[in-house]
Every structure is written in C-alpha cells, then in structure tokens.
Computed example of a mutant assay.
Amino acid sequence: MTYSIHPNTVLGEVKLRVSDLERSILFYEKVVGLTVLSRSGKHTASFTAKGGSTPLLILEEIPNAKRVTPRSHAGLYHFAILLPDRTSLGIALRHLAEAGIEIGQGDHTVSEALYINDPDGHGIEIYADRPRSTWKKDEHHNYIMGTDPVDVEGLLQLAGNIPFTGLPAGTIIGHVHFHISDLEVARHFYNHLLGFDIVVDASRYMHALFASAGGYHHHIGLNVWAGKGAPKVPSDAVGIDYFTIIFENQTVYEEALTRLEQNGVSVSRKAEEARVMDPFGIQIRITHA
C-alpha cells in the first residue's frame, strides 16, 4: 500500500535569506502588499497579510550575502502567495502595474498567476485558484494544467477602482516550487517518504513533478531546469532558508517524523517542530496545528 500524506496537510511560512533587509522590507510592503508582523534585531523581519497573526514570510539579512546566477543551483524557483479570490488578484495586478515592475503571467487552467522577482532575485508567484470543481484530470490521472495568457483585461475590469490596501485576509502560502538535481530522488523523498501525492507527472516532457496533499493541484513543484546534478545553493548566498509543512495534529506529525527517521532521514526535533533537509539542501520546517 502506497503511503499518502494526511489530506489536511498545508504549507506555512517561508524563510528567505536576503542581502539588504531594509530594501526588502520596502519591497514586500509597498510592492507585494504584505505587512511587517514583527522584527528581531536589525537583521530579521516577519510578514503577514491584512489582519494576520502568524507569519507567511520571514526575511533574514545575511552579511555580505552572495547572489547565485539564476537557474544554476538547486533551490528556490518561486514561492507562491495564494489570494482568496479573483477580484483580489485583479487588484494586485493593477497595483503591481502601477509600481512599474516587470510582471510575468500564466493561466494554468486550475489557477491564474502573476510572477515577479524581489530585489535579490527570489521568484514570487501571486495567484488565485479557479473553483476546484472545474479542475480536470487526463487519462493518466494528472491534473490538466496549461500555460496560456492571463485575461489581464478581465482581471483589471473586475478590480475596477477598488483601492489596494495590501494583500487581503485569507491570503496564504499556496505552494513552493524548487529547482532540484534529480527528479527520481525528489520523487522518492517527497512522494514515497513524505507522502505527497504526485498529481502531475511531467517528468518526460517538461522535466518536472507536481505533488500535493488532499487533491490540491500542487503544494510542491519540482524541476530539473537548472540542470541534472545542479549544486546546492551555498549557505552564505541569498536563497530559501526553509519552507514549512503543517500537519493537522500531533499524531500525524509524529507519524511523519518517525517514518522519515526509519528511512534514514536525520530529524532535528525542538519543542513542537522539527527540521529536516531534503536531498538538495532545502531545509523543511515541520510542525502541526
């Protein structure tokens, strides 16, 4: 019997290493629309959406941080901020356009997405899902996901003159997407050990896998677009420090950690959370609701 992760598993905060915290705070507040939740000394800040009490993003300034060439290492491709509805996406689109930054976009059939980069080159997706009832699968049980142009005019028309006052309540981290060095190693770790279900196996035609809990279109994206065998990002470079997996309760959390340990994965436990490292040097914070 194939192990499958608990269906109510979700993602939590993402932590990034940055080169200039004050510059990044300005970007994430004024451009992205997050709000500073707390600061720890001069080098760390956490952010949330409107009315939030738990962090979605943590930034830590690294002294003399290096910057690696895009698509040259295993590590973050982008982290994805999920908005609660299409109107919010339209308002965010208008705001990003007014900020004058470069915006990528893609209609993925299951969702509509905007893409930007922060000052250190971290990829950010800001997106809204289409209703789950409209998601379709092919004959191989893969979700059908496209890369068509977004209906920009329709989004802007929906937004109208509604003022942008930051990312709204209900905004969450929807998924994370990584460059990795080997798809089959990634499949073993994220699917066989952690139990995320493969919902799109595009390993043959686009060299990527997409995995999720509970039938979501994806919580984890994995690709080898930086090259098979891509090296890990150095710890003194900008990049992802960790992402968070949140299990529904302590029982399934403990079961997940035990399964990892029994399969030779080093687990560092502290209070009600644990840290593990995936095979590509990407740290995972694991906790429970």
Rank of each mutant, 00 (worst) to 15 (best):
F79V: 02
L59V: 10
V152E: 06
E13C: 11
R132F: 15
A45K: 02
H288T: 03
Q157G: 09
V68W: 14
A289V: 10
Y3C: 01
V176Q: 06
A169M: 08
L11C: 07
D129H: 12
M277F: 12
A159S: 08
Y205I: 10
N223I: 07
L26A: 15
A169V: 00
G195Q: 04
F280Q: 00
V31D: 07
P55N: 01
A97C: 07
T258R: 14
H219P: 12
L183E: 09
P234M: 10
A169F: 14
G33Q: 03
A49L: 07
V152G: 00
H73E: 08
A49Q: 05
V252C: 05
H140M: 06
S235V: 15
L193A: 06
M1V: 07
Q250I: 11
K66S: 13
P231L: 12
R130T: 09
I180P: 12
K137D: 11
A45M: 01
Y216S: 02
K15Y: 09
E112N: 07
H288E: 05
G166D: 01
D148A: 15
Y242E: 02
F243W: 09
Y127T: 05
I180C: 13
L56W: 01
F210S: 00
L114T: 14
F210I: 00
R132K: 15
A45D: 04
G264T: 05
N249Y: 13
Y127H: 11
Q283A: 15
P70F: 01
A256F: 12
I62A: 07
L11D: 09
I58L: 04
F210R: 05
A230Y: 06
N117L: 12
H141F: 04
T109M: 14
N263M: 13
S46Q: 12
F243Y: 11
R71M: 13
S235D: 14
D20Y: 00
I126C: 11
E13I: 10
E13Q: 14
I25H: 09
P55K: 02
L260S: 04
S72F: 08
H43I: 12
N117W: 09
H140I: 00
T165D: 15
R275V: 10
D138S: 09
Y3V: 05
A256C: 13
V238N: 02
R259P: 09
A202C: 11
G106F: 00
Y242Q: 06
D201H: 08
W135M: 09
E272C: 11
F79G: 03
A226Y: 07
L156A: 05
S4Q: 15
T35F: 15
S268H: 12
